[in-house]
């Protein structure tokens, strides 16, 4: 099922939750809506689900105008952040719910429903819990039941709202992998919302990075990590070193001192230099654009992480770099740093 979203606008009072959002979701893909709180990702998800309505714009699912129908008619499976399991029903009854409320005409008979529920509980490996109540389950179990319940109605799209947000780190990781393998098994077009970029990059086919109601970038996890389109994306995904620089006439200066890096077509004016921690090449003093004194080194595994106080500008700028451990850095040592890969964005981004 393909989804197309055009020019969606949603305001709460004067606050623009969604500001002209366009998105196309391909058949069978697992898409992540990634962004900080307030970015509009949950609002967008709920609009696609039919749990919320845009002030302007179009939503079409498989070419049909989806806004003509309410949530109960869109045949969309929704998994809530806090599971929203029906507390007074057993696990079995929860999963069977969607099948039991279907209109008489298309409703299956009870034995078919029972078989389908069992099939789904087996799929999520929780068949043994079928007569328990939600309050007797752990968070991770509840979320899997919520997923099974959503899948029971054979939805054309699966929407998940921060599905692992309420779980602790270890369970989150397990369920992430589980979701990915589940998706490769059942191939339902799926969109999930998260503020955890590690989750988005690990699980999704494509990532939609959002901030303040707008889409900043859409791309594969690799594209979004290696080729961030805006300062926000660069800063939000992965760790970055950010230095205020000035671009003029094709040369880049930091605190007045020219840096030996190409401006790469960046516009003149106050800008920000973004470099990944591991993209700083280290050399002996004098060999690179930046120089600084190593203040502190932590080693773990194959990486050493060094705190370096840059020489220029009163020595007050401190950055963290990651370096391989082929040459151990010492505290107090003066090193030279050269950005291997970097981006320059205008300062007001």
């Amino acid at each position: 099922m393909t989804i197309e979203v055009k020019n969606i606008v949603k305001k709460f009072g004067s606050f623009a939750a969604l500001d002209n959002v366009d998105l196309k979701v391909a058949q069978g893909e697992l898409l992540a809506l990634l962004g900080p709180s307030g970015s509009g990702k949950t609002t967008l998800l709920r609009i696609i689900a039919g749990l919320d309505w845009p002030d302007a714009g179009e939503v079409s699912i498989d070419g049909e105008n989806a806004l003509a129908r309410g949530a109960s008619e869109r045949h969309v499976g929704f998994v809530f952040q806090h599971y929203a399991l029906f507390r007074h029903m057993t696990v079995f009854e929860n999963v069977a719910f969607g099948l039991r409320v279907q209109p008489r005409a298309i409703r299956k008979d009870e034995s078919t429903i029972r078989a389908r529920v069992k099939e789904l509980l087996d799929l999520v490996q929780l068949d043994w819990l079928s007569s328990r109540y939600p309050s007797q389950l752990s968070g991770g179990q509840r979320q899997r039941i919520a997923l099974a319940r959503a899948l029971a109605i054979e939805p054309r799209i699966l929407l998940l709202d921060e599905p692992f947000g309420a779980l602790d780190a270890k369970v989150r990781k397990e369920l992430r992998q589980w979701l990915r393998s589940l998706h490769s098994e059942i191939h339902v077009t799926s969109i999930f919302v998260t503020h955890d970029q590690e989750e988005a990059l690990e699980v999704a086919n494509r990532v939609v990075v959002m901030d303040k109601g707008r889409i900043e970038q859409i791309g594969t996890p690799g594209e979004v990590y290696d080729d961030p389109a805006t300062a926000f994306v660069h800063g939000f995904i992965g760790e970055s070193i950010v230095l205020p620089v000035d671009v003029s006439g094709g040369s880049v200066r930091l605190a007045g001192q020219p840096l030996n890096i190409a401006a790469n077509g960046a516009a003149s004016g106050a800008s920000k230099l973004f470099v990944r921690r591991h993209d700083m090449a280290i050399g002996p003093a004098g060999s690179g654009s930046l120089e600084g004194a190593v203040r502190h080194v932590r080693s773990f595994g194959p990486i050493q992480r060094a705190e370096v106080a840059l020489s220029g500008g009163e020595g007050k700028t401190i950055i963290e770099i990651d370096a391989p451990r082929d040459r151990e850095l010492q505290a107090g040592e003066i090193v030279s740093l050269q950005p291997r890969r970097y981006r320059i964005f205008a300062a007001q981004d």
């Binding site: 039919g50 109960s72 008619e73 399991l85 969607g98 409320v101």
Partner: peptide, 13 residues
């Protein structure tokens, strides 16, 4: 309203 929303999304009237 979460449980009610869940029910609606599952197709209930």
């Amino acid at each position: 309203t979460q449980e009610e929303e869940a029910a609606i999304s599952l197709g209930a009237s």
